[in-house]
């Protein structure tokens, strides 16, 4: 594989890892997991925090 493939591949993997991390984080910190999929985070983020 060419160096270009290696570099782009590693960068892409890093981006995907960051995305997975942010989804997991949103699930843990948010309203029972919906933040990761909810399209109105600010509305419901804190709703389940206290439960």
């Amino acid at each position: 594989m060419s160096p270009g493939t290696w570099i782009v591949g590693i960068v892409l993997l890093a981006i995907l890892a960051l995305v997975v991390r942010s989804l997991i984080k949103a699930r843990k910190s948010g309203c029972g997991g919906s933040c990761a999929g909810c399209a109105s985070e600010s509305y419901c983020r804190d709703i389940r925090k206290k439960e």
Partner: peptide, 12 residues
């Protein structure tokens, strides 16, 4: 009405 943005807060 709220669900016209996203169903999640609408359901909540």
């Amino acid at each position: 009405l709220i669900g016209s943005g996203c169903s999640v807060p609408g359901i909540m």
